[in-house]
Nucleic acid binder design. Structure first.
Lengths: 231, 231
DNA sequence: AGTCGGCGTTGACGGATGTCAAAATACCAA
DNA sequence: TTGGTATTTTGACATCCGTCAACGCCGACT
């Protein structure tokens, strides 16, 4: 039996552009792989050897300078596609933030298969265009927003992205959620230092806008205030 | 006679994925349009009504906050594709920086045509993936680089992008070029203020790294220094 | 040529955020 | 529970860059 038959992201990932026969063919090329939190899957500037669909978990895409500064340039959730097809090298590293399960393909196999299946390429194109939109709006945040606007925008985005994963019908943004990021990683997403992130979180807590029961859990108490802060 | 026959970007734009018959069909959907410097072509958050290929000139893609802050999130050169196919709204405004000539299509027409021509969609996918790579490396700049690193990186990128336009065989980065940006626009690309940009330019000039014969012209005198500064 | 207006430069100053260091807290394993 | 470690928080201080204001330059137009 094809493992695609039981895949929870079958209807949301780029595979949804394929019929049953095509899925079967693609299935022979890919394999499931578990990645534990903190483990890298793809290295920046390495030959782009593999691509993958995220089945479960959250991964970060990062770029780094030689002197060790890091910027998180993307976050991959279940059903997202990662890796760089049709190119020699990957421009970002991919590292699991939580334990994750992915469906990996060799880049060469995937490229060949995709070129023969326009439906798959179309889904990938739609996804890539959407990711580009999202990335561009993040550039606005990085270039033009101050620390408190960055934090507010970040928390609102998290409450939306982390709610989407459920299959429930349109439940809206989550009021309470668990961040897949450490404070340092939040800083790496927002182009801030860990100290600034920490101070901003403390301020939001003191102002009664959010509650922070643990290091990773967030409860949004005053969403309108957050929206106003996000700018 | 099809205007595509004489199009200077015919072999570099996404149209290069089409044969002569297909080009003829696409040609009936599109029309040439001139855009004068400063004129907008697409508005942020508007219904995405048109897409286009850039034939000549340079255009900026921008996003803005309600209170008027602006971030340039992309720059389109000849042969680049602009607009948002397969989506309802565009996430960025497009405004000409120089007088420009574009080949525009209604989004609906283009979407329909693209879905029927996988070769075109493939070219668009490759272009979108490359643009996403470029955008991500720009996020690193916005989030983690300081003013002098930003300026150095910017000038090096300009010297490469502005050299590419020629048909000459691999002439390498330009030593001397004319910026399509005002100082304010450079600031909007880099997430800085016009004053900081101006001071950094002056410093580079005083240090003998560049010469600035006019407000728009740049000559790179000490490229290795610039590369070292770019981080 | 003279004048006007936009753009760019320069200076003085302040504040937001980074840096460095220490303390506190949460998490984990025994 | 307890101890140990990594993470986070907090504080003091430094600095880079933004803000505000004045001035200068260059091109356009009469």
């Amino acid at each position: 039996m094809s493992s695609c038959d039981t895949c929870v992201v079958r209807n949301r990932a780029i595979c949804s552009g394929l019929n049953d026969g095509e899925i079967g063919a693609l299935n022979t090329l890919g394999r499931r792989r578990n990645v534990v939190a903190g483990e890298p899957l793809i290295w920046e500037d390495d030959d782009s050897l593999l691509v993958a669909n995220v089945i479960e978990g959250v991964l970060k895409l990062t770029t780094s300078t030689e002197d060790g500064r890091e910027q998180i340039v993307g976050v991959a959730y279940p059903s997202d596609f990662i890796g760089r097809p049709f190119g020699q090298t990957s421009s970002a590293s991919v590292v699991a933030l939580t334990d994750a399960r992915v469906c990996v393909f060799s880049r060469n196999d995937f490229d060949r298969f995709a070129r023969e299946h326009p439906g798959l390429e179309h889904k990938l194109l739609e996804r890539t265009l959407a990711e580009l939109d999202r990335t561009r709006s993040w550039m606005m945040l990085l270039g033009r927003k101050n620390a408190s606007e960055k934090i507010a925008t970040f928390l609102l985005e998290m409450s939306e992205r982390l709610a989407e994963s459920g299959c429930a019908p349109v439940l809206g943004p989550a009021k309470r959620f668990t961040l897949p990021f450490s404070r340092q990683q939040v800083a790496d997403v927002l182009g801030l230092t860990i100290e600034t992130v920490s101070r901003q979180f403390t301020k939001l807590k003191n102002d009664g806008v959010v509650e922070l029961p643990t290091r990773r859990d967030v409860e949004i108490v005053d969403r309108p205030a957050l929206v106003a802060m996000a700018g």
